[in-house]
């Protein structure tokens, strides 16, 4: 995939230095390295079989659907950790509306995405109105939403978990296993990546997101509706989290109210390993895509190796540290880069 800082350098060495200055290249190489490592140690334990492949691709898809919008927010200089509560809220909404009240999937989807959109809108509006850091604002909504989910579930259905049966078309669309054991969410992940790649790197809106994260004041002065843009990005993140939740619920035919704290960390790790700068203003969709894959390979692949499962967290910790350091040197190199044209 090409990005907006496409190197126009001539010659192989020029192309190579240009490549090294693109964040998704670092993320891609990290992924290849990790993949090679687990292939070597996991080959005789089925890591490379369709079953082994789909296990990490499926895991990547549930994270990846959320990670790209979180990456957008981070590029714009914000963070959203409320997704850890939006996912179970979406799952429970879906299960209560369709399973408990027996409404159609359409009604369930409508309710789910409306609620998710509203949570995103609340996040965004509080952030732009109060200028409280988004980490704190979304920490507050994380707890509020998870509390409300639990409370409402108990009030309406008397349980904290709810079963749901979906018609065949909904199963196929959101939650069944396809060839090689790939879940439906894998295709949503790929599709969403393509759409969001267009938004960030090809459409004018992408320029606004980079400008917003680069220098908020200048972006405002340049006529970008920064408040609406930010609120829109928070809504996108919430609704992506809802999509991920819907896929999981339809697949497993059930939902529980449990807040998914691990998911919060996983999305942030995927984004950072994908080369998005914590300081905002820079990042690519391809990078986040590779970062998500890398994370999933490590988390799922460890089970196919002779190593202890707990070591996967160690590997991820070290990887994250390396990624942060590399991102920073990328930033320094990128700003000093001048390619020579002919």
């Amino acid at each position: 995939m090409s990005s907006d800082i496409n190197p126009a350098s001539s010659g192989i060495s020029g192309a190579l230095t240009g490549l090294f200055r693109r964040p998704e290249v670092g993320a891609f190489m990290g992924m290849v390295l990790v993949f090679a490592f687990f292939s070597y140690f996991g080959a005789d334990r089925n890591f490379l079989t369709p079953f082994g492949t789909s296990s990490w691709v499926n895991a990547a898809s549930t994270i990846g659907i959320i990670a790209i919008p979180i990456g957008f927010l981070m590029i714009a200089g914000e963070l959203d950790i409320s997704i850890g509560a939006v996912v179970p809220a979406a799952k429970m909404t879906m299960a209560i509306v369709c399973g408990f009240y027996g409404q159609s999937i359409f009604v369930g989807l409508l309710a789910t995405f409306a609620i998710a959109g509203m949570i995103g809108w609340i996040n965004g509006t509080i952030v732009v109105r109060t200028k409280v850091p988004s980490l704190i604002v979304t920490l507050a909504t994380l707890f509020s939403v998870s509390g409300l989910t639990l409370f409402l579930s108990l009030m309406l259905t008397d349980t904290t978990s709810q079963a749901l049966t979906s018609p065949d078309w909904a199963k196929a669309l959101f939650g069944s296993y396809h060839f090689w054991g790939f879940q439906s969410s894998v295709f949503w992940w790929l599709g969403l990546s393509a759409v969001l790649y267009y938004v960030l790197h090809l459409s004018p809106w992408g320029n606004w997101i980079f400008a917003l994260g680069g220098d908020k004041e200048s972006a405002r002065n340049a006529g970008i509706p920064i408040d609406r843009l930010k609120i829109g990005l928070f809504m996108l993140a919430s609704m992506a989290a809802a999509l991920s939740g819907v896929c999981e619920t339809v697949l497993s035919n059930s939902a529980t109210t449990t807040t998914n704290f691990a998911l919060i960390f996983n999305t942030i790790i995927a984004v950072v390993v994908g080369g998005v700068l914590l300081t905002g203003g820079f990042g690519t969709v391809a990078g986040v895509f590779f970062g998500t894959a890398t994370l999933a390979i490590v988390q799922q692949g460890i089970g196919y190796t002779p190593f202890d499962r707990n070591l996967s967290s160690l590997i991820i910790g070290v990887m994250l540290l390396i990624a942060v350091l590399m991102n920073d040197s990328f930033r320094i190199m990128a700003t000093n880069w001048s390619s020579k044209k002919k």
């Binding site: 907006d4 800082i5 320029n207 980079f210 400008a211 680069g214 220098d215 972006a219 820079f282 990128a334």
Partner: peptide, 14 residues
């Protein structure tokens, strides 16, 4: 000044 944007992109911001 958007330090991490290209000359062409920042010229046309907005």
């Amino acid at each position: 000044t958007f330090p991490l944007m290209s000359v062409g992109r920042s010229f046309f911001v907005g």
